[in-house]
Design a protein around this nucleic acid. Structure first.
Lengths: 187, 187
DNA sequence: ATTGTAATTTACCTACCGTTAAATAAAAAT
DNA sequence: ATTTTTATTTAACGGTAGGTAAATTACAAT
């Protein structure tokens, strides 16, 4: 089916893996091209804006993936809130433990949040956390008042992000797993 | 009193500010030297191992600062656990909200945690979180069983680190402040 | 004053960075 | 078959990265 050897989505997946495990600045265009099995000049064909443009599309793809494959469970009105949280936890655990490099959104936040000038893709990271916050708050709102639900969602996200941080530092997924557990118990 | 224009500690403070707000890889030796008011070659006089060596000493200094100026409150047996947590919260709030760039330990974790080869200073970051965890667990252990105390300490740290992350992303300290509040209520 | 040592700068090196232009190869259209 | 368009590579550019060697300046000891 692929007439040409590369399609844009494959490039994005490979580039994402590099960015996630090495970070934005430590990932060179040469690294990214090598991981994609392509000469680095070719990356400018699909992403004329260069490295920043590529990262922007990578984060957009990640955001889309999370919305379609993970956050959807939060909006599934057929299931109980408890079931939704369990589904969310299971999916998040799979994604963040299977893959090396933790959460590219969290990594990117701490790496570039207050660079001057701020890269354009900071907006993508914000949009991701906006959505994650909204979907968790929606689930908690099934039982709790909107404000409390929102606070619980924020708490869960902070706990989870901190858990991913310690998981990476100590190479021990239990921090992250515990955060997911607490999110479920918070309902 | 300073016979020469630079002493090592001043260099470390200035370098720390750069590393904290720009991150490790985005901080060039030229940036660091400029912030220190020194030619970049001079940095190799005090830190022969170069950038990595400098970062290592910066993180060591930060670790020492936190131990002596913040974590001490946790071990102050003269005060009640509630008072100690209040003191810790107040100090942490001051440090992380006043300064730009959030927590250099958290930033560094997510930026370099799984670089290959891992920089030597990853060990310093681990030591910092070890100590922070131990001191919080010590306070919680005044009322709770050791295991539960440790879990509460982990939870607090994760919540706080996630709070610092969102604080930086949204430029809103309330995430972080809420985490400190929850830490106090967890006792 | 002279010498010795510690601190700091000047000048430079190589390697690699992100990026661009032009050439080539592959596929589609006619 | 020929042409046109799309995909991909080759080759190179200027800039800057981290780092080094040597020269110079500032202080200390005598």
């Amino acid at each position: 089916m692929p007439a040409y050897k590369t399609d844009k989505d494959t490039l994005l997946v490979r580039a994402m893996q590099v960015f996630r495990s090495q970070g934005y600045h430590a990932s060179s265009m040469a690294d990214l091209a090598a991981a994609c099995g392509v000469q680095k000049a070719h990356l400018y064909y699909y992403f004329p804006g260069g490295k920043e443009d590529l990262m922007n599309h990578v984060l957009e793809a990640v955001h889309t993936y999370f919305k379609e494959r993970i956050m959807v469970y939060a909006w599934d009105e057929e299931r109980s809130p408890e079931e939704r949280l369990a589904q969310l936890s299971a999916q998040l655990y799979k994604v963040f433990v299977r893959n090396q490099g933790g959460c590219i959104m969290g990594n990117t936040t701490l790496e570039v949040a207050h660079l001057d000038p701020a890269p354009v893709f900071v907006a993508r990271v914000k949009a991701y956390f906006d959505d994650m916050l909204a979907c968790l708050a929606h689930v908690f709102a099934q039982r709790h008042a909107p404000e409390l639900a929102r606070t619980k969602a924020q708490t869960a996200i902070q706990d989870i992000q901190g858990g991913i941080m310690l998981m990476q530092l100590y190479n021990d997924p239990s921090f992250f797993a515990a955060a997911l557990q607490r999110m479920q118990e918070a309902y």
